[in-house]
Amino acid sequence: MDTSERLGPPAGSRRILIVAYDDAQIIDIASPSGALDIANRLGARPPYVIELGTLGGRAARSSAGIRVGAGRKLEAVTGVLDTLLVVGGVGCEEAAADERLLVQVRRLAERSRRVASVCTGAYVLAAAGLLDRRRATTHWRWGERLARRHPAVAVDVGPLRIRDGNVYTSAGVTSALDLTLTLIEDDHGPTLARSVARELVTHLHRPADQAQISLFLAGPPPGDRLVLDLTGHIAGHLAEDLSPAALAARVGISPRHLTRLFTTHLGITPARAVRAARTDAAVHMVRTSGLSLASIARRCGFGSPETLRQAFLDRYGMTGDRIRRMPDTPPVRDTPSQKTPVP
């Protein structure tokens, strides 16, 4: 037994245990541990004590081939945990089939104030029974398979992260940082979370309701160069004239041909694509800025606050004021659901 196991974590600290296994995604390990370390250096009180655990305390081989030394044997961890966090990676299915690991995850979850997973770490939580009768997310590519294997889990691969009670699940890879910033904000407030985000040279964490993949990445890349050019133009010029006529004129085609191209390559009309892009940008600004709805409407290309209000009602079934007051959970979208039905 090493000294850290004998002495345990300092009194008054928040003990975070990150669970890894072979072929884990190294970003899933590095993002949470790095962000929590920065939070400590910026004054988190009580501070976080970050531990990496594996079965037998063996070094975990990441899918990139880099071996990460574990400080703790999962079997030897005792005492109270603040957070149990299971990482994802291509080794998730093998990990989820390892009953020795599942026994430890169940045991440690009972000692934890909250439980979380990054990406396909949800496979391990689900196999341990910790997601039964809960809503959960994972990497969009792995959601359907997770739902088939665990019909008691309400799998929704739309949002970046979901909190159901004291269980947090998050989407793929880089959403590990969004999840960790959420945990920091829950523990220490938005000021410290913003400071950590600045230190990491990133935007303040994306709202939970932001889709894992944007409208223009949801399907195969547009096969037409004109459509590709126009989708980029839309995203970067929301406040400008984006009418079908203006878009068609930009690339020298007729509005009718433009509509055919968008319908063929994106499955929606140009007008619907523009409205969706503007609404997504507006909801992000509502959730992450203190700007007035009138200012947001102008910046996102809506003619008036009332037009923005109607767009929110049409897409989310609620007003901008209500969205701004919401806790960190996603509103329901009106677009074709990405939620995987549970049998």
Rank of each mutant, 00 (worst) to 15 (best):
R107H: 09
R145Q: 12
I323S: 09
P207M: 12
A11V: 08
G43V: 11
I26A: 03
H265I: 03
L200R: 14
L313Y: 12
H237Q: 05
V155D: 02
G219C: 08
P220L: 15
G69L: 04
G301Y: 11
L258N: 04
P327E: 11
E144I: 10
L55K: 04
Q104E: 15
L84P: 02
D156T: 01
L101P: 00
D37G: 11
R278T: 15
T307R: 13
P47K: 07
A277M: 08
Y168P: 00
D224C: 05
V155R: 01
A245M: 08
L177S: 03
Y123W: 15
A60E: 08
G69T: 06
A35F: 01
A282S: 10
E185H: 07
R61F: 00
E110Q: 11
L226I: 15
I27A: 10
D98A: 11
V153Y: 04
D321Y: 06
N166M: 09
G34I: 10
C92A: 15
I268H: 07
S304C: 08
V80P: 07
F262N: 02
L108C: 01
R15F: 10
A11T: 07
L238E: 08
L52C: 02
Q25Y: 05
R275C: 07
R58Y: 00
A128E: 01
A136Q: 00
E5G: 01
S13W: 04
L125D: 01
I18S: 01
S112R: 07
T191N: 09
G89N: 08
V201E: 14
G43N: 04
G232Q: 06
A197T: 13
L74D: 05
T78D: 14
G89W: 06
S292E: 12
I50Q: 07
R256K: 15
I66E: 00
D82L: 10
Y123H: 14
A147P: 02
D28R: 00
A154R: 12
L215T: 10
G301R: 10
I268G: 00
L228F: 06
G8E: 13
Q310L: 06
T340E: 05
L52R: 01
L42R: 08
D186V: 04
Y48Q: 04
A11D: 03
A136P: 00
T335I: 14
L81N: 11
Q210S: 11
T307D: 13
V167Y: 06
T307I: 15
A126N: 10
I253M: 09
L230A: 05
E306W: 13
V86E: 04
P336M: 09
D178R: 05
S117A: 12
L183H: 01
P10H: 10
H233V: 12
P327A: 11
R113H: 13
A311V: 11
T231K: 05
H150A: 15
Q212W: 02
R111A: 15
D2P: 01
R134N: 02
D156L: 01
A95T: 08
L81W: 05
M1W: 06
D314R: 03
R145S: 12
